[in-house]
Design a protein around this nucleic acid. Structure first.
Lengths: 237, 237, 237, 237
DNA sequence: AATGAATGAGCCTTCATTCAT
DNA sequence: AATGAATGAAGGCTCATTCAT
């Protein structure tokens, strides 16, 4: 029993160490970027000897990959839940934006890494835009494929591109906060940004022409998105 | 005349070399990324001796910065021309998208560098997202500020964020081609992507509910962009 | 005990390596001079890997500085012991000369470095004549200041300059051996040089005019320096 | 005639250029030291294109060698004139010291180079202590050889070493000024240093014990150098 | 003679990775 | 498991020298 306890301890201690190092890696990546980050930095941040990093990770690349995988797996999982869950398209789009911003709220540094360090890994690495955002993009594209088949989308939209545009907007929106272009401490601003991203994606930036229809769907007090869409559309052509 | 030619030759030859090296740097950056790009590679690609790179550029960072500045200055200049030119908002948005895609058509590798290598430069460098995309984003944000004042935009949109979203969509749209997610050799696809980006940004992805209105303006079979814009814009407001 | 031995081993092994590298640096410096000495040479001479030099020394300059500091600190310490010790002025002057020649006897290469490489370090470096010989010169100048106050020196001598002259004579005397102008393997010659330097400094090169006075003060078998000085001095002027 | 004049002009212009470059080299060497001095620096200082240095000098080493040769040849010539001229030993010793200090007064930077840059040249170079000071030392050693044969020197002095000591004292004395240890703008100090060097070398630093004898020979108010030397020497014992 | 662009060997330094303890 | 000394390949930068004009 003492043994098993010790073993458990060891086991815990091991994964604890592993997590400590991973956490340190995220922080250092966020601060210095992948290439500016040396293994020694990660070890120092984690408070461990620097050979130890190689006990838990084969090499720097695997460390980075783990950082990405860990970060993305959570994100992709949540995106999948939204995409495969119940609700109308608009609802799901808002859900995806929510997931991204929530991730940012919970761990801005991790998101900074995921956003800014995408495609920064060395040439040989498997980590790049393809394996990162693209997972989420492909996943969401199914959403748009189905929506299009259901006639919810304009007929000329390419689902994959739609998905790319959504994530492009999300990324650049978050980037505005990540890089300090916008103030991340302003919760109101974050909420407004979320809404604007989703609604712009859904309805565009243009104001409605008809009176009474100018209120976008996300203004809860005035109208549902659907009616807004309805009222606007007839006037086009 | 022989004289002036010789003088011109000298003048040209110098800047020719410089341009050759710059060109080579763009190509190597596009191929290997900032960190994977060695001065030796650039020199070899340019067909010049190693040391010559240092004749024209103080160091690797300055070379990089020049690549970025050159690339961006052209892009920003063109964006400014569109933004400050004549035309309705929608027209200008399409114009901005056009500029980006045209740049891609003319020199895909340069665009690849500008898109993928943003924010990859070392910590000490002045090259980063801030000084790159942000210039264009800030510039365009004026467009949205004015449009909002004119009532052309939904009242709840933040101009800076709108601008960021537009460029986010453009970036991710181009990224789809840059990374091979979409086929860059397909001119039709490029045209469709352009249209979809602009129109999604302007009108959202949602289909019009009313019959007869489902065709978005960018459907080529119905109308040219210009006429579509023309016919559409007057009716709004 | 095995433990303590192991601990001692570890402690020693580290500084042993450091000392090995320092030793190698001295040798290579002595052989090739500061600028001709490459880190690769030092590593090879020490029988360690290239990178290890940087494990123990921040850079080439620090390695150099350490070589100088180590060398000088020993020398300056010994000079100080002589200067601050007991004895008459003449005794101390001979002692200083002794220290220099003894250092040469023990480690001619180190002395060669200290003598020939002084002031060779790069502009930015802190190593130069000022911080090297000047320490010893300043230190000894106190000796002459006190001696002058005690009336042991001619009234018109500047203590600092006197000190400089002594070390100038010592340096050039050693240089004669270092450069091969004189034969360093000839112990007798070394002894004679020592004596000549000290006595020339103390009494000048000029022979005594009166017969029977041809024996210089430093001939131990005939008279003590003190009595020699005494007996000689009254007759002057 | 126009031709010959032109040729003369060219000839003059050429050697003028050569001298300009040499002068610039001396200045830059004095300022930055041999290794810290790049050909480009010399060219810039001289105000010429940098390939031109290679028209007049085969390579950097030859340039340095020329600097040394030029500097030393003047010095050695003057030392020779003193050594081979008329006068008593003491007179000649004072003359040698005079030559060195006069050289310093006329062109301190050149002397700085000659003093501080000795032995700094690369391993392969012929320029080093051997070919520099040693010429003067060997030359002067003949003086001491003859003086010793004439019984003017203590019997135990080695002529070569005596010569070395004299130049060592001169060098370190000048070094005090060159390095700023002493104030080179103080003409009085320079004169006193000259006197102290010569007299210390001739008579040593020790004060005479007898009253009224404390004034060294070089005190101008009591006696001329010559008479002092004369009157002093015979009275020694 | 004069210019300065072009060349490329050389060297310092960094840092991912391995290894002995 | 943990440590940190040891390794060495890689690459940025300098600068003496050459060469075309």
């Amino acid at each position: 029993m003492g043994q098993s306890k010790s073993a458990a301890d060891n086991g815990n201690r091991e994964s604890e160490r592993r997590r400590t190092i991973l956490r340190a890696a995220i922080d250092v990546f966020a601060r210095k970027g992948y290439h500016g980050c040396r293994i020694a930095d990660v070890a120092k941040e984690a408070g461990v000897a620097y050979g130890l990093v190689y006990h838990y990770f084969k090499n720097k690349d695997e460390l980075l990959e783990t950082v990405f995988d860990t970060g993305w797996s959570g994100f992709v999982t949540r995106v999948r839940a939204v995409v495969e869950g119940e609700g109308a398209l608009a609802q799901k789009v808002r859900g995806v934006v929510d997931v991204a911003f929530e991730a940012y709220r919970v761990d801005p540094r991790a998101v900074k890494v995921l956003i800014l360090e995408i495609a920064r890994s060395p040439a040989g690495s498997r980590i790049n835009r393809q394996t990162a955002f693209v997972d989420a993009i492909r996943l969401s594209s199914e959403l748009f494929t189905r929506a299009k088949e259901a006639g919810e989308l304009r007929s000329d939209t390419d689902p994959l591109l739609s998905s790319a545009l959504l994530f492009g907007a999300i990324e650049m929106g978050l980037t505005a906060f990540v890089t300090g272009l916008a103030d991340a401490r302003d919760t109101q601003a974050l909420e407004r940004a979320k809404a604007q991203i989703a609604e712009t994606f859904l309805h565009g930036v243009l104001a409605d022409a008809s009176p009474g229809a100018e209120s976008p769907a996300w203004k809860p007090e005035k109208s549902s998105e659907k009616s807004a869409t309805k009222s606007k559309v007839p006037k086009r052509t």
